[in-house]
């Protein structure tokens, strides 16, 4: 249906727009290969690329390479994503489809927990986790994801589930399916795009969450990538080349995951046999 000209102009627009958004990557790649003295220059590309920014950065710590820190972070992320996606779906289904006492009240509480700035709960929380003996482990970072994955994701999934027509549930109910069956067999497959969204955001946001990581992790062998990166920055002395090189590497997992998780957005739910 689309004409060739329309297609071309689509691509042209998207390419220009993408390049505009990608400007930082280009700048970043160039900067990561520069010598410190060259960073002040307006040129994008260095005169001679300093590949050793990458090799030195990778091996900066005497005891571990960045591979170790990537491993740590991915392990932590595995827990976060698994816990977050599954429990957020459970909780969201409860809030959006089931009727129970005080439902509105609990939902209100859920939303309220998002509105208090984290800066004032971080200290009591640290004291709590410290008493439980969880400091310098991943428990304080991972465990919260297993309790519904946070209000943001619960609310997000609630909105998606409420967008699904109730006829499907009703039909299943008549067939004798329990609420649990409805959740696993009907709702879960239908909200797949939203679940992928939750997974991606959980991944990216916990990768970024430096404040929590610096507080709870103190041994180098447990360092995440985010913590390792901060080792390049001190009060006066910043290892710019290595910092830029390693932080560029540090975002690649997120980029790859985003790139591959996309097909789930594309595959809408139209194919799942909804009657019009």
């Amino acid at each position: 249906m689309t004409t060739l000209r329309g297609k071309l102009s689509n691509h042209l627009f998207l390419t220009v727009f993408s390049l505009l958004m990608l400007y930082p990557v280009i700048w970043w790649v160039g900067a990561s290969l520069k010598k410190t003295v060259e960073l002040g220059l307006p040129t994008i590309w260095p005169s001679t690329p300093m590949w050793e920014n990458y090799s030195k950065g990778w091996h900066f710590s005497g005891d571990y390479t960045f591979a170790h820190f990537f491993g740590n972070t991915l392990l932590m992320e595995l827990g976060n994503v698994a816990g977050g996606v599954f429990t957020a779906a459970l909780v969201a289904y409860g809030f959006s489809r089931l009727q129970f006492k005080l439902r509105a009240f609990w939902f209100l509480i859920l939303l309220l927990t998002m509105m208090l700035p984290g800066q004032v709960t971080v200290v009591p929380q640290y004291i709590l986790f410290n008493k439980l003996g969880w400091v310098d482990s991943y428990v304080p970072l991972v465990l919260p994801h297993f309790f519904g994955g946070g209000a943001f994701f619960v609310f997000l999934l609630v909105q998606f589930i409420r967008g699904i027509p109730r006829d499907l549930d009703e039909a299943a109910k008549i067939d004798g399916t329990s609420v649990y069956g409805i959740f696993f067999r009907i709702i879960l497959p239908l909200i797949k795009p939203a679940l992928v969204t939750v997974a991606i955001f959980t991944f990216i946001w916990s990768w970024d969450d430096f404040f929590a990581q610096v507080l709870y992790i103190s041994s180098v062998d447990k360092f995440t990538v985010g913590l390792a990166l901060r080792m390049f920055i001190d009060q006066f002395d910043i290892q710019w080349g290595q910092l830029l090189a390693m932080s560029l590497l540090s975002i690649t997992p997120s980029v790859i995951i985003f790139l591959f998780a996309q097909k789930y957005f594309v595959e809408g739910i139209a194919t799942t046999g909804l009657k019009g």
Partner: peptide, 27 residues
């Protein structure tokens, strides 16, 4: 239905009482 509802939201509820409530009350 009460039971089912609370079962489904129990992960959040548990987390709220175990991890979130005290720091909030404290603040």
């Amino acid at each position: 239905t009460n039971l089912a509802g609370y079962l489904f939201i129990s992960p959040w509820l548990l987390g709220f009482f175990l991890l979130t409530l005290w720091p909030i009350a404290q603040s």
